[in-house]
Amino acid sequence: MTIPLAGVATSNAALRNLLHGLPGVDRVGADQRAAMLGTRSIKTTAKAEGIDLAIRMVDLTTLEGADTPGKVRAMCAKAARPDPGDPSVPKVAAVCVYPDLVARAVSALGGSGVKVASVATAFPSGRSSPEVKVAETAFAVAAGADEIDMVIDRGAFLTGDYLKVFEEIAAVKEACARPGDGRDAHLKVILETGELATYDNVRRASWLAMLAGGDFVKTSTGKVQPAATLPVTLIMLEAVRDFLAATGRKVGVKPAGGIRTTKDALKMLVLVNETVGDGWLDPGWFRLGASSLLNDLLMQRQKLATGRYAGPDYFTLD
C-alpha cells in the first residue's frame, strides 16, 4: 500500500484525507474471520508454549480507586514470580498502575526485569486539558515509569478533530522522553474501541496513533464494554502490519479488558500468529492487559503438567 505521509499532520483536512482513504473494514467479514480463527484448537505442546508466551505478555493490571501501596506491592511480587512454588513459570511483561503508585511499583520490582507501566492523561475518560495530560505523563515518567498508557480524546476523534487527537498524542510522546539517559518511556495509545462505534474508526484511530508516534496501540481502558474483542484486535493487527509496510516503523498491539481465560489469551495469540506472524509473537510487540487472566494461565499450566486441576486456593490472590 502506498500512502503519502508527508505533511499529513498540518491540518484536519489532510489527516481526514489520509484516514478516510484507508481501505474500509467490512464488519461482517471481519467478525467472520475473527470467529474462524477463534475455532483453532491449541492443544498439548502448542498449549504449553502458548501459555508461557501469554504469561510473558501479561501487563498485570490494577486500576481501581481503591488501590493502595500495599495492593501494588503484592501485585508486583506476583508479577516477578507468578507461582511461588514453581520457578519455571516466567515473569510477566509489566505491571500497570495509576501514576501516583508508579514509584511504589518501581521500588517493589527493583531489578526483577518486570516493567512498570502507568496510565496517564486523565485515564479513563481523557477529559482534561492538554496541559494536565502532559503534566500527568511527566509525573509518571519522573517517578520511573517505563511505559505510559495514554487515552485518546474520543470526543475529538468522533467529531473529526483528528488534528487535536494527533497533537495530544505527540505532546504526550514528547513528555515520555528522558533526555540524557536514552531510556524514553514507551507510549501505548488507548483507543477505547468500545466508544469508537465502527471498525473503520478503529482502523483510522490506529493509524492516527501510529502517525503521532505511539509505540503501541491498545484497545481499551477496561472500563468500557465491549473491550478487547477478537475482531477489534484483528483490525489493529492489520493496521500495524500495513503501517510497517508503508513506513518501516513497527508498532506493538495490546488488547486489554475482558481477557480472562487461557482460551481467550490463546485465541489472541492465534490472531497474532495468522495475521502478522512471528515478528509480533514477543512481549516487546504484543501485550495482554489483564488482571484475572494470570491465575487462569497458571491453573491451566499446572493442569497441563500434572493432568489435574488444583483448587483455586493453590493460586495466590493478590
Binding site: 483453532r40 492443544k43 498439548t44 505442546t45 502448542a46 508454549e49 502458548g50 495469540l269 492465534v270
Partner: peptide
C-alpha cells in the same frame, strides 16, 4: 512461529 500441535 507458533506451531499448532496436531489436534485430530
Amino acid at each position: 512461529m507458533f506451531e499448532y500441535a496436531p489436534a485430530p
